[in-house]
Amino acid sequence: MAGHHIVPLKTNIITLLSLVVLTAVTVLTAKFIHLGDWGNLLLAMFIACCKATIVFGWFMHLKYEGLMNRTIALCGGAFLFLFILFAYLDIFFR
């Protein structure tokens, strides 16, 4: 049962290290790679989403959870995305 899957220390360490690496990537790409107004924003958000997925999956154990808890987490993100998207439909096309 997912609730009793004990995540070993090694997994947590690897998770932390990946997050630190991705943080470095975020900083380096933002400072040194210039992709224009939208490019850097989207790249940074993409990396942030990867980091969030790692935190959700390993630190928060979603990888070992059932479908419902994953759906709940996903719904939060999905509805937020839709909120941003539809607000942009207004602001972008004014």
Binding site: F86, L89, D90, I91, F92, F93, R94
Partner: peptide
């Protein structure tokens, strides 16, 4: 004052 495009979608 919302954009016409958004208005149509909504």
């Amino acid at each position: 004052g919302q954009s016409g495009f958004a208005g149509k979608v909504f």
